[in-house]
C-alpha cells in the first residue's frame, strides 16, 4: 500500500514578512451533491460528520482546523473531515441519504487546499480574482468560487487575516507559485489599509 501525500506535501513559504502561505497537507474532502440541501437527513448527516450546520449560500463553517463545510453551489457542498475519517464519513452519508437523489464522493486526493495568512493576504488575493476582498465585501465566514491567476478556485475567509483556497490537485503548484509571486516583498499595494 502506498502512502498518501498531499499535492505539495505541506510546502510553506513566507513571501514577505508577516504573510504566510502553506499547503494544508492531507485533508479528508467530500463533494456532496443533492437535490435538497435542506432535507433533514442531509442536515443531520453533515452535522454529525463535520460538526457544523449546513452552511448558507456563499458561506462556510468550520469546527476545528480540518473539520467543516463549504457551500459550493445550490446543490453542492464541500465537506472537510480529518483524512483518516473520510471513508467512514462517505459511508455514513451514503447510509443517511440512501434512496434520495445524491452523490457523495471522496475527493481528498483530487484537490489541494492552501492557506494564506497575514494582514496583506486580502490584497495578495485581490491582484488575481474579480472579487471585493474588503471586510465589507468578503466578511469572515463567506465563501466564493471564482478564478484566481487563471485557475478555478474556491476561496473562503476563516478569520480577518486568514484565508483558505481550494483548487484541483494538478494546479496546486501553479497556485502556490502565483500566490508567492503576488505576495513577494516589494509588491505591497496597501489597498486595504493595514
Amino acid at each position: 500500500m502506498s502512502d498518501a501525500v498531499s499535492a505539495l506535501d505541506g510546502r510553506a513559504a513566507e513571501p514577505r514578512p508577516g504573510l504566510r502561505l502553506a499547503e494544508c497537507g492531507l485533508r479528508g474532502q467530500i463533494t456532496l451533491r443533492a437535490g435538497d440541501l435542506a432535507s433533514s437527513a442531509l442536515v443531520g448527516a453533515v452535522e454529525a460528520i463535520t460538526g457544523v450546520a449546513v452552511p448558507e449560500a456563499l458561506s462556510a463553517g468550520f469546527a476545528g482546523d480540518d473539520r467543516g463545510a463549504v457551500w459550493m453551489a445550490p446543490d453542492e457542498l464541500l465537506l472537510f473531515v480529518p483524512h483518516a475519517e473520510v471513508a467512514g464519513a462517505v459511508e455514513m452519508l451514503e447510509g443517511a441519504l440512501a434512496g434520495t437523489h445524491h452523490m457523495a464522493l471522496d475527493v481528498s486526493h483530487a484537490r489541494a487546499v492552501l492557506r494564506l495568512e497575514g494582514a496583506d493576504a486580502a490584497e495578495t488575493l485581490a491582484k488575481g480574482a474579480p472579487l471585493d476582498f474588503s471586510e465589507a465585501g468578503f466578511p469572515v465566514g463567506r465563501a466564493r468560487r471564482t478564478h484566481l491567476g487563471g485557475l478555478a478556485v474556491g476561496i473562503w475567509r476563516r478569520g480577518p487575516e486568514e484565508w483558505e483556497l481550494v483548487c484541483f490537485r494538478s494546479f496546486a503548484h501553479h497556485l502556490f507559485a502565483w500566490l508567492e509571486t503576488s505576495g513577494v516583498e516589494g509588491a505591497e499595494v496597501g489597498r486595504f489599509g493595514v
Partner: peptide, 12 residues
C-alpha cells in the same frame, strides 16, 4: 440568480 453572487463577466 442561482447563488446570489455578484460576479464579473470573467466568471461567466
Amino acid at each position: 440568480p442561482n447563488c446570489g453572487a455578484d460576479c464579473a463577466e470573467t466568471e461567466l
